[in-house]
Amino acid sequence: MSTRSTERRAPGARRLLLWLPLLPFFLFGILMEIIPILSVLLSSLRDSQGGLSLANYARAMTKINRESFMNSVRLSAITAALGVGIGSLAGYAIMQSRSLFFRKVATALADVATNFGGAPLAFAFIVTLGSTGIVTQLLKKAFGIALYPSFRVYSVSGLVLAYLYFQLPLMILLIQPSLRGLKEEWREAALNLGATEARYWAKVALPVLAPSLAGGFLLLFANSYGAYATAWTLTGPDINLVTIRIAALIRGEVQLEPGTADAMAVISLAIMSLCVLGSMLTNRLTQRWKS
C-alpha cells in the first residue's frame, strides 16, 4: 500500500479504503446469509396473492406442524440435558486422568465424533441397534435380553441415542476450557476452610461452572434442533420433526401452501437465534471472572 497517495486523500476516503479488502467477505455474507434469510422472512408474511398476511403462520401451527415443533423441542431438550450431564461428567473424568496420552486420545475422539453426525452415523446405529442389529442380536442370544419391540432405533428413543453420539463429544469439548479453569487451589482453599468435598462442589465449583453448563445446554439444543440428516436416515419421513417437515415441504412431498415452510423456517430461526444469543451471553458471564 502506498502511504503517500493515501495521505493526500481525505481521512474519510482512507478509512473507506481500509474496508475494501473485506468487501468480498461481507458481500458473501450478505448474499448468502442476510438476503436469503430476509427473503424467507418476507415470503413467510405473504399469502398466495402476494398480500401481507399471517396465514402462513396459522398453517404452521396446525396440529401436525405444532406436533413437529413439540417433538423437535422435546428431542433437543432431552439430548441437550443428557449431553450436558453425561458430557460434563465424562469431560471431568477425562481431564482428571493421569495419563496425558489418554487425555489426548479421548479429546481427539471427541473432536472427530463431534463432526461425525449425518447419514453414516445413523446407519452405524441401525447396524448396531436395529431390529437385526449386532448389539440387539448379541443381547438377545447371549443374555436373553430382547430390546424389541419395547425399544426401536427408528423411533425417538433411537434418535436420542444417535444424537448423543455427537452431543456428548460436543459437550466434552465445550466444557473442557471451563473445567481447566477450575483452579485446584479453590478446592484446597475450601478444604482448608473446613468444607467437605460436596460443599466445595455446591458452593464453588458448580456456581463457577454454571454459565458454561447453561451455554453448553443452549448450543447442544440448537445443534440437535437443526439436525436433519441423522433423523432422516434413521427414521425417514416417519418421525415428525421440524427439519424433516420443512424438507418435505421443500421437496413438495406434502400438498400444502409453500409459505408454510417459510413460516416454520422463520420460527425455527427465532428459536435458534435465542439459543445462540443466549450462549453468547453465558460466554460473556464466564469471561467475567477472568480479569
Partner: peptide, 21 residues
C-alpha cells in the same frame, strides 16, 4: 487428619479467592 478438620488457615500464592462470591 483430613485437611478440612485441621483448623489451619492457609494463604495461597494465587490468592485462591472464590470468584463467584
Amino acid at each position: 487428619l483430613p485437611a478440612n478438620r485441621r483448623d489451619i488457615g492457609m494463604v495461597f500464592q494465587s490468592y485462591a479467592l472464590f470468584p463467584n462470591m
